[in-house]
Design a binder for these strands. Structure first.
Lengths: 342, 342
DNA sequence: CTGAAAGCGCTTACAG
DNA sequence: CTGAAAGCGCTTACAG
């Protein structure tokens, strides 16, 4: 006799009320076979009347499964990387988890010390882990897999066996934007990319160069900057004042594009006539820049849902169709790129 | 016999290895009195050699306490409000929780439907809840308190009895910035505030007006805009082109200040000579604007730690000094405000 | 179809 | 100072 009594009903209370045994209530609650229809109804009625939620702790001790999903926050990621992705993603994860009866454990990792995260996953018997901003943090990914925890990455197409991921078509979007520039008559192209160790940036680079090569356009360049408006503005100054000024700059984020727009304005260049500019992310600012920014919308909600459901599938709750999902992005054409002239 | 056997050692294994009973191991582990020094050492040695982590699930079932803290994410908050605060705050919360042996449960609430959050807190016996971006969401605050869950708000000074909060001196910072403007000779002041339902914005307003009144300066104005650069730029255009152009604009965020800076540049106004501008938040952009932005740094790490420790104190783990903590902000003077001319 | 019982891994009065 | 035992609230073979 240890834990304090409280007013919560236990499965035994329900059993007594329904005139059956606790085991039968358990079977009925969990939708298991071997409970008579009448008994089932009686139990449902009692639960409906008196209210009863199974104690997840007791269930876990008995089954060994926690019905808990870990969400790993990479706190060392720059604020700018974090920003646009999280709220929508978390909302979708939370919704999916709620619907499936899972709870979410928040795993934070300051720096690279993964020991505590691994310990928590193991102690709490976390059923699976989502890494919403996976990337070059490979050590922990491998360690999680080593622990036997089903792992789903968002935004990083890991080659590790068993690891699932959900990503979107950064490459195709970059290709489409670049083609938009080319079909609008642009011939001096620059990709103002983010940090090249970011998986999404690698894909954007691939997409850019594939369009450039397909069109046989020489002299295209790629420059890498942090996801920072001011830094982008500074680099844009060099580009736009330098020799062979580009007439199209594909930017890897709206924040980068904002810096380029700013510099263009400072230099008195007209957008898109003198230089066409595109962004990525479709953040709220993109619709309000002058001119409004052509950009790419990511399927954030869908990504969160897909990641959650992939995890449920890995846990055997749903059929597992694929461990690797690529969702479509959507190019939003506004006024900062040339009208398709063809 | 239900849960799958695994390789993890139980307290009974340790007890056997140390030649004592499980109860004694439990008492030794938990630092309880009534265990001989020699026994204690032997148990420590065994644990050190073989490794052992107590199963939190079993402990919880026995004690009724989960050693889990809830972190409530307000997903309906705009991305801009969320942004600057979360990573540092979560990191600090995570650190503090880790050190105290607590885990963090991620509570998401899409829209205003709090039922699931309350149910989770109750089912999982969450020991206490932190609301990192509390505000006008009062319904859930009251409901959490009603559940008996110790509750700590960040950024909202609730009047509800029993509710703890950690906030910082938004008001004093606004006063200091305003005085900086006044002592620099500015006499036509505007507070370009954020949404007035945000608690921090109310305090910033208070601080601004208190400085204005103390200096006896007439004609000061306050205008409210969303936390959005483009929206701020539009409002700034009206202000800076209208009659009696302000010579100082105190902005409620760096994003707002960025819009004002942009408009000033567009209009060919010199900052700070024609119009002085200050921000709030000290986001990374603030150091890189042209001119660099005078702004306010929030004690985010300290806030996270304070919130966590207040919760521990409410849970009886630490002495509770106060349920209401106001931490100091720091005004960062850069080049967008007048040099203190006196 | 249903019940009685054992077990999940801890903690904590209760004895001694 | 230490052990034996009961209990936390479930689940699930095992019988019937």
């Amino acid at each position: 006799m240890t834990a304090a009594k409280n007013d919560r009903l236990t499965i035994r209370d329900i059993a007594a009320l329904a005139g059956v045994s606790a085991g039968t209530v358990s079977r009925a609650m969990n939708g298991q076979p071997g409970v008579g229809a009448a008994t089932r109804d009686r139990i449902s009625a009692v639960i409906a009347e008196h209210g009863f939620r199974v104690d997840p702790t007791a269930r876990q001790l008995s089954t060994g499964r926690s019905r808990t999903l870990g969400v790993l926050f990479p706190l060392h990621a720059s604020e700018v990387v974090l920003h646009p992705v999280y709220p929508a993603l978390l909302g979708a994860l939370g919704d999916a988890a709620e619907r499936a009866g899972y709870d979410l454990l928040l795993l934070t990792m300051s720096g690279q010390k993964s020991a505590h995260v691994l310990d928590t996953v193991s102690r709490r018997r976390v059923d699976g882990v989502v890494l919403p901003a996976a990337g070059a943090r490979d050590p922990i990914i491998k360690q999680l897999v080593g622990l036997g925890a089903p792992t789903v990455l968002i935004g990083h197409r890991s080659k590790l066996p068993g690891v699932g991921w959900v990503d979107c078509t950064h490459d195709a979007a970059a290709t489409e934007l670049t083609q938009l520039m080319i079909s609008g008559g642009r011939r001096s192209l620059v990709l103002l990319n983010g940090p090249t160790h970011v998986s999404a940036c690698k894909l954007r680079s691939t997409g850019f160069w594939s369009a450039v090569k397909a069109a046989g356009i020489p002299g295209a360049r790629e420059v890498s900057v942090p996801f920072d408006t001011a830094a982008a503005a500074a680099v844009a100054l060099d580009l736009l004042r330098g020799p062979n000024r580009p007439d199209a700059i594909v930017c890897a984020s709206d924040t980068i594009a904002a810096g380029v727009l700013e510099t263009a304005r400072t230099l008195g260049l007209s957008v898109p006539d003198d230089v066409a500019i595109s962004g990525f992310d479709d953040r709220s600012l993109a619709a309000h820049t002058q001119p409004a920014l052509t950009t790419v919308r990511m399927p954030l909600q869908e990504t969160g849902h897909a990641a959650a459901h992939m995890l449920f599938a890995m846990l055997g709750d749903e059929p597992l169709t694929s461990r690797h999902i690529v969702l479509p992005t959507q190019v939003i054409v506004r006024d900062s790129t040339p009208r398709a002239a063809r």
